[in-house]
């Protein structure tokens, strides 16, 4: 099967099998920032934004994504050369350790801050309820999201 996916604002033609999950298709086509974790929707390592909403790409068939759908991976919001405020806040807060969960968590933060520019600690926790981190203990992550929120307000 074939489809033109809109990833990070650019169209990309991909080939895939009928049973293929979006996670695999994205990684096979170079989007390796989308991580393969539990593959059952628990860990959030494979999280991408679909039309602005966080979803687990491991639980989505590629065949159910259309050309009109807008997919965003963590590299779509900023990269090493031009990091997004959230990505900078994660580094400055010490919220990155092994880094495996970071792409999903940064995207979950991005989706939260798009809807709510001044989240409380509880709201941050709720927004992160689909992301597991085995290194940080979450404290630094919550601090990073709140730091990013403050910096974004000043912009």
């Amino acid at each position: 099967m074939e489809v033109i996916l809109n990833v990070n604002g650019k169209p990309i033609k991909v080939e895939f099998t009928p049973e293929e999950h979006l996670l695999y298709t994205l990684r096979q086509n170079g989007f390796t920032e989308v991580k393969s974790g539990c593959k059952e929707g628990e860990c959030g390592a494979c999280l991408v934004l679909l039309n602005g909403k966080p979803v687990n790409s491991c639980l989505m068939f590629t065949a159910s994504v259309t050309e009109e759908d807008k997919l965003l991976t963590v590299k779509g919001i900023g990269d090493l050369h031009e990091p997004h405020v959230i990505q900078e806040a994660f580094v400055d807060s010490g919220a990155v350790q092994c880094g495996f969960c970071t792409p999903g968590i940064v995207l979950a933060s991005y989706a939260l801050l798009q809807e709510n520019s001044t989240p409380t600690e509880e709201e941050v926790k709720k927004a992160m309820d689909g992301n597991l981190c085995r290194c940080t203990g979450y404290v630094k992550i919550i601090e990073a999201v709140q730091l990013a929120a403050k910096r974004l307000q000043k912009k």
């Binding site: 929707g41 628990e42 959030g44 999280l47 679909l50 909403k53 966080p54 979803v55 687990n56 639980l59 989505m60 979950a108 709720k126 927004a127 992160m128 309820d129 689909g130």
Partner: peptide, 9 residues
């Protein structure tokens, strides 16, 4: 129910 990304799907 479930978690945020799952509730979205």
């Amino acid at each position: 129910a479930a978690n945020t990304p799952c509730r979205n799907r």
